[in-house]
């Protein structure tokens, strides 16, 4: 099983209001096709870690390697392109572009990547929306959708470029039981069938217990790793 993401000794400080160490040396690997959950008490640094893993936050110590590339030390534009092609996100607070329709939101990263023609991109975007059960709302403006609906559109957007790694910061935070279950199944399927790596922060024990591996954090440290469904290879 190949390693797709390798974090080595990640250290992060915040300087406001006073110098404060959030992450105190985080190291772990994620494999291709692995479904990984990060859990821990509120404020322990999960989101902070995820932003570093996502390559958006470049202000940290330690090294990060994704898909065989060292991303630590790369320029902003390079990283932007890298994210566009290899990473999909679902943020803790669902973030869509409010002026655009659900469909346009999903298409946006693909139009930027321009790997497919606009027609194909639209077709694929509708597919992804159907996957999260939002295809009927394709033409609705993002600002007119409910929180849970927005979150599902955001998931569809994260999938559009078939990224190597999909990251979610409480991607089911706003969803009811049935929809959470659905998103869980989508992630599971992407991991097993498409061999995409999933890293999610979650407070939902059922969600975490369904994943391949749980990383537990406390106060900026990793304090434990569990394999809820038994360790495989």
């Amino acid at each position: 099983m190949s390693t797709i993401l390798k974090a080595t000794n990640i250290v992060k400080y915040f300087y406001e209001p006073e110098k404060f160490q959030v992450l105190k040396g985080i190291s772990f690997d994620a494999n291709k096709g692995e479904f990984l959950s990060i859990i821990g008490k509120s404020g322990c640094g999960k989101s902070t870690l995820l932003y570093i893993l996502s390559t958006m936050d470049t202000d940290y110590e330690g090294t990060l390697e994704i898909n065989g590339q060292k991303t630590t030390g790369q320029g902003q534009n390079q990283l932007a392109h890298f994210r566009n092609e290899h990473m999909g996100f679902v943020f803790q607070f669902h973030y869509l572009l409010p002026e655009f329709t659900a469909l346009q939101n999903v298409m946006m990263p693909a139009l930027k990547l321009a790997k497919y023609s606009p027609d194909e991109i639209e077709h694929r975007a509708i597919e992804k929306l159907r996957l999260v059960g939002m295809d009927e709302y394709a033409m609705k403006h993002a600002s007119k959708l409910s929180g849970g609906q927005q979150q599902r559109v955001a998931i569809a957007r994260a999938l559009i470029n078939d990224p190597t790694v999909i990251m979610g910061d409480e991607p089911t935070g706003n969803l009811d039981k049935a929809n959470s279950q659905k998103v869980f199944e989508i992630f599971k399927q992407l991991a097993t069938e498409n061999q995409q790596t999933i890293i999610t922060v979650t407070h939902d024990p059922d969600f975490a217990n369904g994943s391949d591996r749980i990383i537990e954090m406390e106060d900026g440290h990793i304090i434990g790793t569990h394999f809820p469904n038994g360790e495989h290879s």
């Binding site: 996502s54 958006m56 902003q76 534009n77 932007a80 392109h81 890298f82 994210r83 566009n84 092609e85 996100f89 943020f91 973030y95 869509l96 572009l97 946006m108 990263p109 930027k112 990547l113 957007r157």
Partner: peptide
């Protein structure tokens, strides 16, 4: 922020 997060460059 969204655009940059999803891969738009400066």
């Amino acid at each position: 922020a969204i655009l940059k997060a999803t891969g738009f460059e400066g």
